[in-house]
């Protein structure tokens, strides 16, 4: 007979049932942005290569930012990098024993989301005026 109190495995479908705390959301985005950055290194190296190859290449990279598609992709990649950067600093601070409480974790996660939003906004403005 089925005992409903028995422990069960957590499957993928449970992802949409649970309400995740902000700390868990920041944690999983840190992981996802890390995986994205693994591929993003190629983008950074490509831009570095073309921009250093010649004056023409440098100007191509600069003028590429005037295309809306390139601008959106660049801002998205910068957002991914900034999130991983800021969430990483939160991680390092918690390693040092700073904010290692439930309230501290929730507060730090909010600070991460807010500061990433502000930094991405500023980066976007800087890219548009460059």
């Amino acid at each position: 007979m089925r005992n409903d109190n028995r422990p069960t495995n957590v499957g993928l479908s449970n992802l949409f049932v649970f309400r995740f705390p902000i700390t868990a959301i920041v944690s999983i985005i840190h992981r996802i942005t890390g995986i994205l950055l693994f591929a993003g290194i190629a983008f950074a190296l490509y831009v570095l290569q073309v921009s250093l190859s010649s004056e023409q290449g440098f100007n191509e990279i600069k003028s590429a930012l005037s295309s809306p598609l390139c601008l959106v992709i660049t801002i998205a990649l910068i957002a991914v990098l900034l999130f991983h950067f800021v969430a990483g600093i939160k991680h390092l601070l918690m390693d040092l024993g700073i904010g290692e409480t439930l309230e501290g974790g929730v507060f730090a996660s909010r600070v991460v989301l807010l500061s990433v939003a502000i930094l991405v906004f500023l980066a976007g403005i800087w890219l548009v005026q460059v």
């Binding site: 992981r31 890390g34 995986i35 290194i41």
Partner: peptide, 12 residues
């Protein structure tokens, strides 16, 4: 970056 990515990707 590469060492960091290696440990990160290993963890994942």
């Amino acid at each position: 970056t590469c060492v960091h990515a290696w440990i990160g990707m290993w963890t994942v």
